[in-house]
Write a protein that binds this DNA or RNA. Structure first.
Lengths: 342, 342
DNA sequence: ATTAGCACTCGGAACCACCAAGTGCTAACA
DNA sequence: TGTTAGCACTTGGTGGTTCCGAGTGCTAAT
């Protein structure tokens, strides 16, 4: 494995490269205060580190640059604890100080503020809704031919969808159906709505309205047809500020996947709690092969994970990004937890 | 003014430059089939056109490039009618064939499809809501401390905002207030809600609930506090594909204004019906000094303008962009009009 | 009024030399 | 034996030179 000195050198190189984005030479390392070895010694170690795959050269007589393996070692073994500035802590605390009102807002704000703090792109994925319960169902007729169905959950999420009302169906029919649905379904977890309706509601509906089936079909389609993933992205244009994306092509392909919710959501889904770092080619998606994605989970009530993530170049400020995500996700979980208890 | 031949030459240069993004020389113009003059003749005219400010050189011995004044003349006087392809017409018609359900959807789709068709960035601004009427008001309590207010308009627009409920206020109070508000306010144009409440509702409220004032304040703040501009933007990353934005700085500043709703919305507000073209420095905003913004109005019912806009480089496919916006806005107006009659 | 001809200009590509920063290796050193 | 000094070698980048192509402006001929 690596000697202490080699590890130290690797760390210095990565720290320096993260800051400057320039290849690092042995002479520059030797100049550092806390380094007491000569350039020649350092050169030898750098050669070893390169052989072992932690460093690469951009050309045969250039300084070294960290490889993905180098970054991987760095984040696994030598991420120095990073203390956030008081201003940063201030921002975080103030965000969660006020009483929380609505989960959506929290997610949106989180994405926004984290992207400001880090200058990276931030993504926030809402939790799966296994435990989210129906709070209220509502139908608002708009005109003869259309109406809007509104569904409110106990997380404060409001979903609405419009649908066409055929002239064979009267608005009063719809109203009756909604009343029944509300009576029976309020408090039921969203994902059980379907089976609950079948077992408890259909018969009842039959008694009240003559052509309940059609009314029901309508509402069912309107509300349960698509499922929406709640993904908030902020700071996309920060991508352009990184020198590694001076190559416009790279920026473009990254933008393309970012604008595509269906592609991004799976990358953010966490299968275990905590922080996860995905460096360069560790990312499944080709457009992200020059980027690092750091995800952190937050929890809502009972084991429901949501994800906050930062996307930046592989040359990322790992220490800062990780601390920030760590602190943020804790605060967020705590805050959400408190909210659900009330 | 310009001679016929000069105008022709100007047109050829602009058409060519729009296609190639390269400076055009006299020789190349002379080669065109429909041009029967020698390069020397064309050179003379080009010199005149340059003196008059319609063309510029990138350097003293280069071909010419249209100036903003050149583009201005081009769009004012020689925009050749552009016939959309059958596929394009197909897409447009299919978009408005289906019965419309909800205005928001239409706006979103329009932004999306137009950006696909043109490869420019598309912006759609919703109409001012002078005539939009309240369809229904709803309060859904989420937990002891918070509730969500939902407002539905006759355009199918759903607005919701959460607010904190102090413990001095009971949910039943809120409910009463909402009932009264609905009784009195449904059908009232959104912008008159405020004064209507003052004149008609406050006294009534007083009779029903003891501390109506607080309840009313809450709801009032939640629903009428902010006004939301409804701006949909699509195809932002198309910006990066234009060669004029190889200079990353330009792209970045453009992205920054695009991500800022408050800055964009005023640029899109139309003071008169029809199509308006704003070229380069004609745009107030500095970041847009290398871009052209083409806006088209659509109408909703009675003289309420909304705007659809395309944003591209000054070297834009004006003819195509204009026809497309023209056709689209007509279809959209018509479709919305029909919808409101039902 | 138009065009042919010609001298002139400029940017871009190709080539060169040179320099700075870096490396690898060998031999000397503690 | 691990560390270091010294040195030859490599490479990208910079600046200068030349050359070429594409273009212009002007003058004189048609």
């Amino acid at each position: 494995m690596l000697t202490d000195r080699q590890a130290l050198i690797l760390q210095v190189i990565i720290d320096e490269f993260i800051e400057t984005a320039q290849p690092i030479g042995s002479r520059n390392i030797a100049k550092k205060d806390h380094i007491s070895y000569s350039p020649a010694t350092i050169r030898n170690d750098m050669a070893d580190l390169e052989d072992a795959g932690y460093l690469v050269k951009t050309h045969s007589s250039s300084g070294r640059v960290p490889s993905e393996k180098g970054y991987r070692f760095y984040v696994d073994h030598m991420l120095s604890p990073f203390s956030l500035s008081t201003e940063e802590m201030q921002v975080i605390k103030s965000q969660f100080n006020d009483r929380m009102i609505e989960m959506e807002k929290v997610m949106q704000n989180s994405a926004h503020i984290l992207s400001e703090l880090t200058q990276y792109t931030t993504l926030v994925l809402g939790p799966e809704v296994y435990e989210t319960k129906l709070k209220q169902l509502q139908i608002v007729p708009i005109n003869k031919q259309s109406a809007i169905a509104i569904l409110v959950t106990d997380t404060g999420h409001v979903e609405h969808r419009s649908f066409a009302v055929p002239h064979t169906i009267d608005h009063s029919d719809l109203e009756k159906v909604v009343n029944i649905l509300n009576q029976k379904l309020v408090g039921v977890p969203i994902i059980y709505l379907d089976r609950m309706i079948e077992s408890e509601v259909l018969d009842l509906l039959n008694q009240y309205t003559s052509n309940y089936q059609k009314s029901y079909d309508l509402i069912h389609n309107a509300l349960f047809g698509h499922q929406t993933t709640s993904l908030y992205v902020s700071g996309k244009s920060n991508i352009l500020m990184q020198p590694e994306f001076n190559d416009i092509e790279k920026a473009r392909s990254l933008f393309n996947v970012l604008e595509n919710e269906e592609k991004m959501a799976p990358m953010l889904k966490a299968d275990e709690e905590g922080i996860h770092i995905s460096i360069g080619h560790e990312n499944a998606m080709e457009a992200m092969n020059h980027s690092t994605l750091i995800t952190a989970t937050y929890t809502v009530g009972n084991e429901q994970f949501g994800t906050i993530a930062l996307l930046g170049p592989t040359r990322m400020e790992y220490a800062k990004a990780v601390s920030l995500l760590d602190v943020w996700s804790r605060h967020m979980s705590q805050s959400l937890h408190k909210w659900f208890k009330d």
